[in-house]
Amino acid sequence: MKIHLYLYTLLSFYLYGCQQPARIVYQDNQGNIITAADLTTYTGEVDYNMTDDQHIQPAAQQLHNEARTLGQSGQYEASILKLEAAIKLAPNWAYPLYDLAFTYLLKGDSAKALDYYQQTDKLQPRGFFTAKTAIYALEGEKAGKFPSGLYMAYLQIEWTTDETEKLSIARAITQQFPDFAPAWKELAGLLDDDTQRLEAINTGLLKSPDAETKGMLLINKALVLNNKGEKENARLLLGELIFAAETTTANIAIARMALKSIEENTPAS
């Protein structure tokens, strides 16, 4: 019996005892842990088509697709009718609400745009594309904190393909309207010098940004810190962001990808 027990113990040692424990990348005092293995499958992509009931009627999808085609050709009124019909068929689907908000924004009706962005955010409180940033900007315009039309001017950064023009627009907005946090996020992403990037990031964080903008600022800050050799601080920043209650779904995915990149480029000790 003692021999059998010895052999079993020895076998267990070789089968289990020699295995290396999962390498911990981040751990906090709340019991949250991220291991290197946890990061292997992350792609940074978010499926915004998912709904709470996980079912979207094909008819609603068809109406939404038709509405987007109409909107892209400038037929806004026809697009709105299609989107409203899609919403009736799929009231828990945020996508047509989001596109309805954007269509009203293009029509110059910021009040209705804000209303539908807020409805989108209510359906998807952890974030849906740029809805939170749109609400931040349009509420600021409504309250007089920002001038009317600033959000549309800001969107030109995304719409232009010329990097020099993007930088010029971002600089102009941050200089003229320094309290507009999203522009600092864009500026930080367009700058090449890490010292200047960090300055833009920290300035943006001081401007009470929306959750989506704040998350991207913190992710970019972590990447700059990593470039400067402060890997532990970068890991800490990303880990805290991932487990923060207000972090959006998209920012969690991007933060995990950033953490994955840092780990893959860290030499084994």
Rank of each mutant, 00 (worst) to 15 (best):
Q75S: 13
P178R: 10
G239K: 05
S12R: 14
H4A: 15
T203A: 12
E212H: 09
Y8F: 13
L97N: 15
K231F: 06
P182Q: 01
L39K: 01
Q20I: 14
L167T: 04
F129T: 06
E141I: 10
E246Y: 01
M216V: 05
K214I: 07
A131E: 10
A137D: 09
T9Y: 10
E66L: 15
E139L: 12
D109N: 15
N92R: 14
F180C: 03
N65P: 04
I135T: 02
E163W: 02
W93Q: 11
A143L: 06
R171M: 06
W184K: 00
I157M: 01
Y95N: 15
E263Q: 12
A134W: 01
W93F: 13
K142R: 13
Q196E: 15
L225K: 06
N233M: 05
N265Q: 12
L123D: 04
E45L: 10
D38Y: 00
N29V: 12
D109S: 10
T40R: 10
K221V: 01
N251G: 00
G215I: 00
A134V: 03
D47F: 05
L191F: 02
F180D: 04
Q62F: 13
A250G: 10
T41A: 15
L205E: 00
Y16T: 14
Y14N: 13
S73D: 12
I135F: 01
G108M: 04
A37P: 06
R197C: 04
R23G: 05
K142E: 09
L241Y: 11
P178G: 11
H4T: 13
I87E: 06
D53N: 15
R68P: 06
F146D: 05
G149C: 09
D52I: 15
F146Q: 05
T164C: 03
A22H: 09
N226V: 06
S269C: 06
A137I: 04
N226L: 07
T35R: 03
T248A: 05
P267S: 08
Q27W: 11
I56E: 11
Y104V: 07
T164M: 08
E240I: 02
Y76R: 12
I242A: 00
E66H: 14
E141Y: 05
M257P: 03
Q124S: 11
D194F: 03
A211W: 00
F177N: 14
Y116K: 03
D210K: 08
Y117T: 05
L259K: 06
N265I: 07
K82A: 15
E163M: 09
K132E: 11
T69P: 06
I33E: 08
E263N: 07
A250S: 14
Q30D: 12
L187W: 00
N29I: 12
G239C: 09
W184G: 00
F128P: 00
T160Q: 02
S12P: 09
N29R: 15
H64G: 11
K88A: 14
E84Y: 01
W184L: 00
Q119M: 10
E141F: 05
Y151F: 13
G229R: 07
A137R: 08
T248R: 09
E139N: 13
G239P: 08
A37I: 12
Y6P: 04
A113N: 02
T103I: 14
L70H: 00
H55S: 15
N65Y: 07
T133K: 02
G239F: 02
N251D: 05
P125G: 07
G229M: 08
W93M: 12
S269H: 11
F177D: 11
